[in-house]
Each structure stands twice: as structure tokens, then as C-alpha cells.
């Protein structure tokens, strides 16, 4: 069954244009607060460990998602990690071509669960899965308690 009347004239069909205006401001949460303030104030990347499973989560979480224990003992995971995988972006968020390609990837840290997604300051032709990279932090006075306090990994 279909509509009994149907216009074949595409001009007759209207569209109504609009947007979804709203802005968002998020607190980083209990674990996020500790992670980002440590990054800002001490320049350290930290993970939270589960007292039962002994796993260290990065980014840190307030709880262990495997056994649901509250995480304790925050650990400095260092600044060096390994590129687990990467991609090279040639277009921006709206599909516009970029002047310079952007390299970004997932960086794993030794003896931790998870990792960080970030920009890699490595040339597209040089980047490799498995390569070692190091966090390059912004100067202390420019750090705001955000993931962008790390300028890049390279």
C-alpha cells in the first residue's frame, strides 16, 4: 500500500531548516579531576589501579570495570608509550581538505589497560605501528587541566 496521491514535482516538496543549539560544559568527574589536575600541576600522566585485579587503568577510572572495586593507588605511568595504531587525516571535520595532514593514533603505556588517543608529531611517511613515542607537554603556565595539556606525542 502506498499514499494515494504523490507529487512528482521535487520543487513542491519543502524542507524546513534548523539547528540544535545547545552548549555543554562537563565536569571531568572524580577520577578525571585527579588525572587532569595532576597532569596540569605536576606534568605527570597517571593511571588508577584496581586493588583486586591489580590492573592499572588509563585513562584512569574511579572503579574497575571488570570487578567493580573502587580504584586505589594512582600510578605514574611515565611519558613513553607505543603506537598501537594510527591514521593520517587529510580532511577536516566538515570534509574540507587540510593544508597539512594530521597524524593521530592510540598510544599504549607499559603495564596499563587502555591508552590515550592523541595527535602524533611524526611525519606521515615516518609513522609506524609499534614505534616508541613520548608525550610533549605544554609549558606549565599554559596547562589548563585538559587532554590538550599534552601538545602531542612524538
Amino acid at each position: 500500500m502506498t499514499f494515494l496521491e504523490r507529487s512528482r514535482d521535487p520543487e513542491a516538496h519543502k524542507h524546513w531548516y534548523g539547528d540544535m543549539e545547545a552548549s555543554y560544559l562537563y565536569s571531568t568527574g572524580i577520577a578525571g579531576e585527579k588525572f587532569f589536575s595532576t597532569l596540569r600541576d605536576k606534568g605527570k600522566i597517571t593511571g588508577a589501579s584496581c586493588p583486586k585485579c591489580r590492573k592499572v587503568f588509563l585513562p584512569p577510572r574511579m572503579y574497575c570495570e571488570i570487578c567493580f572495586s573502587e580504584t586505589k593507588n594512582w600510578k605514574d605511568v611515565g611519558k613513553e608509550g607505543t603506537v598501537e595504531t594510527y591514521s593520517v587525516g587529510y580532511v577536516g571535520i566538515d570534509g574540507e581538505p587540510l593544508d597539512e595532514p594530521v597524524v593521530y593514533g592510540l598510544i599504549r603505556f607499559p603495564r596499563t589497560e587502555g591508552g590515550l588517543v592523541h595527535v602524533l608529531s611524526v611525519k606521515p611517511e615516518k609513522v609506524k605501528i609499534g614505534m616508541k613515542v613520548k608525550a610533549k607537554l605544554k609549558p606549565k603556565k599554559e596547562r589548563k587541566g585538559s587532554i590538550l595539556d599534552i601538545a602531542s606525542f612524538g
Partner: peptide, 13 residues
Amino acid sequence: TTTSTDPKVKYAW
């Protein structure tokens, strides 16, 4: 510490 976003999406319904 906070983070903010300001999504700019447009629609044609």
C-alpha cells in the same frame, strides 16, 4: 577541571 563542546550541526527536515 572541565571540558566543553559547542556542537554546530544544521538540519534540513
